[in-house]
């Protein structure tokens, strides 16, 4: 119960008061305790007023002199009230004949009690302001954390790579090229593009999809690119059946394949073979895409952004448990994403 905890905080005051009454006022210890315990309790309740006046006079926004004056005045009034109660208590104790001479001793203590009351009240005010400031800074910290979290989420959303816009323009151009000579093929490209975009939208909203679904999207993508690149694009797949059921973030394989086409096949006059591989090894899933490259290819804009985004996404999702490794060996470029296995891999 909070009020019991609140009163316990004031126990040291009771001890202090008893000490003051016994040592300064010359009260015998039982009398000192009989005075101190009720007075400490009363003061505890009086100090609730300090909390109220702190809320009315927040440190920011009011001028300092007004705040100091108000608190000083309240302190004096509160302390006077308290001393009055002490005297009343003295009279009460005298009346029941328990401690003869107590009224005198209390009145002798009045000055000290007054000073103590003012001091303690002002102390209570300070503690209150401190607690408020701490609470405010805690809330501010929380707000910052919250902001950071939503920024990170936004970042992830942004990084959730959409299909490369180049691809859209290229596909539209394929349609444009086919529509006169081969309308049926143009229709197929339109339908394929529609299917892929739809699937990409659907899957993009999910946190993870089965690798099987990701591979389906990549196949559709490659079909469309074959229209454009013709025989320059050859594809080979080597996917372990156990890997198909693994859960992966959407758009994990796509950037690797896009990269292979853009910087590999696209930079070679005769194109070449793009190999996709997926392999489960214990608790790790490895996705590998290799392609031939021209080491002396002309500079191309946007080199590496897709892969960099993917690397950041994986790092945000899995931290140190994932890796994106790229390398060139002779004329072969390989990009490898290694992630922890999630979900069933039983089929």
């Amino acid at each position: 119960m909070p009020w019991i905890r609140y009163l316990t905080v004031w126990l040291p005051l009771a001890v202090l008061l008893a000490g003051v009454a016994a040592l300064m006022g010359g009260s015998p210890w039982p009398e000192a305790l009989a005075l101190a315990l009720p007075l400490a309790t009363v003061f505890a309740f009086l100090c609730l007023g300090a909390g109220y006046s702190c809320r009315v006079l927040p440190l920011s926004g009011t001028d300092a002199s007004r705040t100091v004056l108000s608190h000083a005045a309240t302190a004096v009034v509160t302390a006077a009230l308290w001393v009055g109660m002490a005297r009343l208590l003295g009279h009460l104790l005298e009346r029941i004949d328990l401690f003869p001479g107590v009224v005198l001793r209390v009145s002798q203590l009045s000055g000290s009690l007054m000073a103590l009351g003012i001091l303690l009240y002002l102390l209570a005010v300070s503690v209150h302001y401190l607690a408020t400031a701490r609470e405010e800074s805690r809330q501010a910290e929380q707000r910052i954390l919250q902001a950071e979290l939503s920024a990170r989420k936004a970042e992830l959303r942004a990084l959730k790579a959409q299909i490369d816009p180049h691809f859209l323009f290229n596909s539209l151009n394929s349609i444009n090229a086919l529509v006169g000579r081969d309308p049926e093929a143009a229709r197929q490209v339109c339908a394929g593009l529609g299917d892929l975009m739809r699937l990409n939208l659907q899957n993009g909203r999910k946190r993870s999809i089965a690798l099987r679904e990701e591979i389906d999207m990549v196949r559709m993508y490659l079909e469309l690119e074959k229209v454009r690149l013709g025989s320059r694009l050859q594809v080979e797949e080597s996917v372990q059946p156990a890997a198909l059921g693994c859960q992966v973030p959407p758009q994990v394989l796509q950037p690797l394949v896009e990269n292979a086409l853009k910087h590999g096949i696209g930079s070679l006059i005769d194109g070449g073979l793009v190999s996709l591989a997926a392999q489960v090894d214990g608790d790790r899933l490895t996705l590998t895409v290799t392609n031939p490259v021209d080491p002396a290819a002309p500079p191309r804009p946007g080199t590496g952004t897709g892969l960099r985004n993917l690397g950041q996404r994986l790092a945000a999702l899995y931290g140190g448990e994932s890796r994106l490794v790229t390398g060139i060996d002779g004329g072969t470029y390989s990009a490898r994403a290694i992630l922890p296995v999630e979900g069933g891999q039983d089929d």
């Binding site: 394929s174 090229a177 006169g180 000579r181 454009r228 013709g230």
Partner: peptide, 12 residues
Amino acid sequence: DDEAPARALLRE
């Protein structure tokens, strides 16, 4: 143009 369909379109 390095892409056959793009060349075909221009030719057409």
